[in-house]
Design a protein around this nucleic acid. Structure first.
Lengths: 247, 247
DNA sequence: CTTCTTTATAGTCAGAGTGACTATAAAAGA
DNA sequence: TCTTTTATAGTCACTCTGACTATAAAGAAG
């Protein structure tokens, strides 16, 4: 960025396309799911890929990511604004796209359990996949997906964003299942409860003591996400390393 | 990334320039310093900026960052390879550069105390600045610098990379000063010592009991960086929030 | 050559936080 | 009614940490 020659030709410095790729995660039926789209054209025609697309000339990468998220999920722009979107990192290997030089900014989105996507946008088909059971994906999307999974696992330790996977009102059991699903471990229920409730601002009890119906056991109290965003002290994963890859 | 029209013109999808910007940090005289270069041309001529430059057509952003790092510090490519380089995030506001659309991938580099830079590369001048005492920088580099400072402060809590600021052999007092300088707090010496020494793989005692000369008090034992990269449990900052900005 | 100052290192002790439990309550199903 | 399931309350020991005190080994001051 230090110097640009005087009479420069913009095209001489603009040999790159910039895209965004999204790892949209949700928790369904006790498994971590990710939204994938089937590619309708070469390269990788017929392969599944992370949703994404080109950044337009007058928008930022984050704006592009929200636009694509709305297109792929078929939800309104306003709904999508409430979802947690987090920039992961940028992938810039010169050969990551066989067609041309494409630099991609990857984002992770955390959404509550949504209806099946309506395959909007330019994608042939779109559906939720078990995050551990995707076959080989197009481009370097296997790597992006693995990085994204690692990152949100680590973020759960130090932030409150597990609530982003839950609906507006949720039980502590549902919140615990988010942790267990993303981390792939079982947690002790009383201890989890104690930790969440003693962390100021993590969750907020819904005042009237309504209770959730439908399940089998004793009805559980309902909570909303609190005002806090960080967790102090952190809620560390039991056993082993903090991340899958210790970058 | 989902679709590219059949007969596309590469230029139609390549309206972006991609750059890297580096926040090169070091600890000198108990203060966190950052390497800045003075811009020799408009825009922002005469202003100070983070070093950086365009990503070349056949290199990745990380390769570009290491190349620029070598140019700005005047060190060999091999030396620079040993430095810790960490991708921070990508800045893509459409108006961040008044000349054209530039998307910049920001990196933080952590280096031991180096000689004054020789102002190599295309920069007019280069020098170390107190990280808290830089005036307004060019472009959005104030923001990038603040983000970088936040990030490395947070990384010190969960990773072993404080040793990246130290020479190959260092004392625990020097390592402690890295934490105190980056965090801007004072730490209790015996407690810091206990934490570092009981964390397996954080540091490794230099076998022969040599001791460091020069200082005033009792000579200190020397250590090298250990094999571990992550810290379990973390070494949390005393008081308050985990990051300056809780993104 | 003491004495002071400085830095390194060893150790103590109480409180916070956590992991592993046990116990009780309130629902649905057999 | 009894069993199963889930939620919630509480206990206890262990670990880790923050706040200390104490000792050792160097240079500086007198």
């Amino acid at each position: 960025m230090s110097t640009v020659p005087e009479g420069y030709d913009p095209h001489a410095f603009a040999p790159f396309a910039v895209t965004v790729d999204l790892a949209v995660f949700t928790v369904r039926e006790g498994r971590l799911h990710v939204l994938l789209v089937e590619r309708g054209e070469d390269p990788y025609k017929g392969h599944w890929a992370l949703p994404g697309g080109f950044v337009l000339p007058r928008e930022s990468a984050e704006e592009a990511a929200r636009r694509e998220l709305a297109e792929e999920t078929g939800l309104t722009r306003n709904t999508v604004c409430a979802f947690h979107l987090e920039q992961l990192r940028t992938y810039s290997d010169p050969d990551r796209d066989p067609r041309m030089r494409v630099v991609s900014v990857a984002y992770a989105a955390l959404v509550p359990d949504l209806p099946e996507p309506r395959g909007g946008g330019d994608a042939a088909r779109a559906r939720w996949w078990d995050a551990d059971g995707t076959g080989p994906l197009a481009f370097d999307h296997d790597r992006i997906l693995a990085d994204a999974h690692d990152r949100i696992g680590a973020r759960l330790e130090y932030s409150c964003l597990a609530t982003a996977f839950c609906p507006a009102e949720f039980t502590l059991g549902e919140l615990q299942q988010v942790y267990e699903t993303v981390w792939g471990v079982e947690l002790d229920r009383p201890n989890f409860r104690r930790k969440v409730l003693t962390t100021p601002g993590f969750v907020q009890a819904v005042d009237g003591p309504p209770r959730r119906t439908g399940g089998r056991g004793k009805p559980a109290a309902l909570y909303r996400a609190g005002a806090a965003t960080a967790l102090h002290p952190p809620l560390l994963r039991p056993e082993g390393r903090p991340e899958g890859r210790t970058s």
